[in-house]
Computed example of a mutant assay.
Amino acid sequence: MALDTARLHHLAWQHASKVPAPLLRGAAALGADVATLLRPAGVRRLATNLARVRPDAGPRELRRLVRRAMRSYMRYFGEVFVLASATPEQVAARVRVEGRDECTRALATGTSPVVALTHQGNWDLAGVWASTHLAPVTTVAERLEPPALYEDFMVFRESLGMTILTAGDDGVFRALLRVAAAPGRLVCLLADRDLSRTGVQVDLLGHPARVAPGPAAVAVATGAPLLPAGIFYERLTGARRRAAGTPWGIVIRFHPAVEVPTDGTPAERLRTTTQGWVDALAHDIHEHPEDWHMLQKVFVADLDPERLARAEARP
């Protein structure tokens, strides 16, 4: 009998907060280890992606890396299911930020930065923290299947204070432009996957890859600063661990704003700007590969050639 994914997630959101935290963390780690052993399609794709991130890793090292990556991925889900019950003090203790000055200066002048993100660490925790400590967050979410699962994720993220737009809906890009033009907001976009199949081809760690055009497109169109931000886990100890209520926290690392060229065609400016944020976040992915939760195709060598040809033929 097939698993009802939406029902399982719904039950987890309802009851995970009642489970003792050590037991929940143990269950997440066990699920990660079982998945690593069974190697379903997503785990095999993760292994292929990580092999490109760390090409010098031997088979044994790569297996260990995949295991750590699956534990990181399942840790994310375990944290998401109880995030709504975390206090503001716990959220603050779980997050450490590097390089935020450029972002806070922009917000202080009434500018709304665009933040380019990858699927690293716990991006939902980062969004909750940013909504409270920086500015209200607007983001775009992938439409998940089945619809009930997507609705649960929408309700969850909006309950945490984020404004969620749906990828593929009419008017999403115009809505992002309006937000970026308004004062005191953050446009945070997970962009290391080309959900539209009309993405931008870049060099990612020495390999051709296709990523979403959103962050660069909004920055080019509005003049808003484009700040890449990496997210990765770190172990907590002492007083901070007690305040956080968990042994794991995240680091949000803001990189300097990407220079947006003023010369060239719109397509050239888009490509150059996209490569700029990809270069910045590639460093974080290489440094913390176990926290890059990429179980889907992103590198050109793995994409369907016919679909890729159709995408490249579009203007």
Rank of each mutant, 00 (worst) to 15 (best):
residue 2 A to H: 12
residue 3 L to P: 15
residue 5 T to F: 05
residue 10 H to N: 12
residue 14 Q to S: 11
residue 16 A to M: 13
residue 19 V to F: 05
residue 20 P to W: 09
residue 22 P to C: 14
residue 27 A to N: 15
residue 36 T to Y: 14
residue 37 L to I: 14
residue 38 L to W: 11
residue 41 A to T: 14
residue 48 T to P: 02
residue 48 T to C: 07
residue 51 A to Y: 06
residue 52 R to Y: 09
residue 55 P to E: 01
residue 56 D to W: 09
residue 56 D to T: 15
residue 56 D to F: 13
residue 57 A to H: 13
residue 59 P to G: 08
residue 61 E to S: 10
residue 62 L to E: 04
residue 63 R to N: 10
residue 68 R to I: 12
residue 71 R to C: 05
residue 75 R to M: 10
residue 75 R to V: 08
residue 79 E to L: 09
residue 83 L to G: 12
residue 86 A to E: 09
residue 90 Q to V: 08
residue 120 Q to P: 06
residue 123 W to E: 04
residue 127 G to K: 06
residue 127 G to L: 06
residue 129 W to F: 13
residue 136 P to L: 00
residue 139 T to M: 01
residue 143 R to H: 12
residue 150 Y to P: 04
residue 152 D to M: 11
residue 154 M to R: 08
residue 154 M to S: 06
residue 155 V to S: 14
residue 161 G to H: 11
residue 177 L to Q: 05
residue 187 V to G: 00
residue 187 V to D: 00
residue 188 C to I: 07
residue 193 R to L: 11
residue 194 D to Y: 03
residue 195 L to T: 05
residue 197 R to H: 05
residue 198 T to A: 05
residue 198 T to C: 06
residue 202 V to K: 01
residue 203 D to Q: 09
residue 203 D to T: 10
residue 204 L to G: 04
residue 206 G to W: 04
residue 214 G to T: 00
residue 217 A to S: 09
residue 224 A to P: 02
residue 227 L to S: 02
residue 228 P to T: 06
residue 232 F to K: 02
residue 241 R to A: 13
residue 242 R to P: 09
residue 242 R to W: 00
residue 249 G to N: 09
residue 251 V to S: 03
residue 252 I to V: 14
residue 258 V to Y: 01
residue 259 E to R: 14
residue 259 E to T: 11
residue 263 D to A: 15
residue 269 R to T: 04
residue 270 L to H: 04
residue 271 R to I: 03
residue 273 T to P: 01
residue 275 Q to V: 12
residue 279 D to P: 14
residue 280 A to S: 12
residue 281 L to G: 03
residue 283 H to C: 07
residue 284 D to A: 10
residue 286 H to K: 15
residue 292 W to N: 03
residue 293 H to T: 06
residue 294 M to K: 07
residue 295 L to R: 10
residue 300 V to H: 03
residue 304 D to C: 06
residue 308 L to E: 09
residue 310 R to V: 06
residue 315 P to E: 13
